[in-house]
Amino acid sequence: MSFVQDMVAQYGYIALYVLLALGIVGIPIPDELLLTFVGYLTSLDLLDYPAALAVSFLGAMTGMVCSYWAGRAFGKPLLWKYGKWVKLTPSRLGKAERWFNRYGLWTVSFGYFIPGIRHLTCYLSGVSGMDHRKYLWYAGFGALLWCLFFITLGYFVGTRIDFSG
């Protein structure tokens, strides 16, 4: 986490955007802690709250869109070819795809709040062939709620902490 904090402290909004985009794609970055830290920085007026929210949203959406298109382009062939190594038979893949087609849009929106799930929903949306316009709406809704919640949490925690002793 100290690397992430140092990057945001040194490079500001650019680091925030890149780190969130990479974190959503699947690079192990503590996204919730990053957003809470950003909220804390806004409480100190080191970052602007609306700008931090906008940049966070754009970074999250960039990661979501990249993951969606990667799943769309490469997902099914990879699952068909290598799924057997992790017990993903064609029958299980079919069941998973039917479930995702039924509940996937809401999973995309609220999966942000569950680490690991938010990464998979992006790829699975592409793999399942979900309509990209619908995907963008539901992913955008979830990204906005997620960024808003954790940045606001960090902001309010930061205003309550007294470091003066």
Rank of each mutant, 00 (worst) to 15 (best):
A15Q: 05
L19M: 13
L19D: 02
L20A: 08
L20P: 02
A21Q: 11
L22S: 06
V25N: 04
I27W: 09
P28Q: 11
I29V: 15
I29E: 02
P30L: 10
L35S: 02
F37R: 06
Y40H: 12
L41H: 03
L41W: 03
T42Y: 09
S43L: 07
L44V: 06
L44A: 15
D45M: 11
A51D: 11
V55Y: 10
V55R: 01
L58N: 04
G59L: 04
M61T: 00
M64N: 04
M64D: 14
V65S: 11
Y68I: 08
W69T: 11
G71K: 03
F74V: 13
K76A: 07
P77T: 06
L78N: 02
L79S: 03
L79K: 00
W80N: 08
K81L: 02
K84D: 09
V86P: 07
V86Q: 08
T89L: 05
T89G: 04
P90I: 06
P90D: 03
S91Y: 08
R92M: 06
L93N: 02
L93H: 06
G94C: 00
G94R: 10
A96N: 01
E97S: 08
W99S: 12
W99H: 12
F100H: 07
N101H: 09
R102Q: 13
G104S: 05
G104I: 10
L105C: 03
S109L: 05
S109Y: 02
F110K: 09
G111N: 06
F113E: 07
G116Q: 11
R118P: 02
H119E: 00
H119D: 03
L120Q: 05
C122S: 14
Y123P: 09
Y123V: 10
S125N: 00
V127F: 04
S128W: 00
R133H: 13
K134C: 04
K134M: 11
K134I: 00
G140D: 13
F141T: 13
G142S: 05
A143S: 14
L144K: 00
L145S: 11
L145F: 15
L145H: 12
W146E: 07
W146H: 02
L148M: 09
F150Q: 05
L153G: 03
Y155V: 06
V157E: 10
V157K: 01
G158M: 08
T159Y: 00
T159M: 13
